[in-house]
Amino acid sequence: MAKTVTKKNVKVLENGNGVAKTNRLSVLKTYKIYIGGKFPRTESGRYYELKDSSGNLLANMCLSSRKDYRNAVVAARGAFGPWADRAAFNRGQILYRIGEMLEGRRAQFVDELMQVGSSKLSAEQEVDLSVDRLIYYAGWCDKYTQIFSSVNPVASAHFNFSVPEPTGVVAAIASESTGVLGLVSVIAPVIAGGNSIIALASETKALCAVSFAEVINSSDVPGGVVNIITGKEDELYKHMSTHMDVNSFIYAGSNAEHFKTIQVNAADTVKRVLDYSKVEWTSEKGQSPYYISDHQETKTTWHPIENIGGSSSKY
């Protein structure tokens, strides 16, 4: 992918690496999408230009197609079973690892957020909150089951219990207004609960979405559990919501018409649809174990209880 070298880019790298200023020509990053643990370019070969507030080109982002999405769903479906089977403790460690990796790249993310328009302060707050949110959900991995499970005192001689199980493959359209926090806030609870996800990143702030994919990729998250694509909601929302192998859909965008169409399409396979369009991700309400339970199914199991000891007359 050809890239225009701008002053801005040069500066970024220098800052990002914390290296003293030189006249060295910087190496630019190609922003690709993240599917099945790999970083392909979009199969369509298309791109869109991401510019900073002064109109300088920041990057040519992949303009993902429905086929990229399809490939991502295939990867997510394949990854779902093994991920759901991982011990909750193990999932917690992996989420924690994502937090660690993000923390280590804090400066890069702050820079990328500033490039797409954030102030330094808000960029720093967003990255810090994102790290903390990952740690928050890392801690939930082996606890939400206890919160949302029950042993049910049925009237017959049966042991009866209900536990949450992951819904399956989740598709998400992330919030447009944040670069990394909105993405982390939908991905973390979904994978904490054992699901796999395909997320469409914020179109105008996609830089850190791709960087976040790199963080995921270096955090022991199995390929396919998290898939991140970049592109336009306008083009993808219909295909995303009609795909028959997706079990659940998160909408954190802001277009009511899109959302209505998504709901209509979801009915074709009785997908669960979650409306996160009003959630303020920076607020207290931006995190809760209930975001995990949104993508859990309750499974109830019955088994007879043999009653020998106390029932000499019945046996």
Binding site: S150, N152, P153, V154, A155, S156, H158, N160, S162, E297, T298, K299, T300, T301, W302, H303, P304
Partner: peptide, 16 residues
Amino acid sequence: GVVWANTYNKFDPTSP
């Protein structure tokens, strides 16, 4: 959503 092991078609108000 409901799995009956060594039984079938059991229902109870307490059981989701």
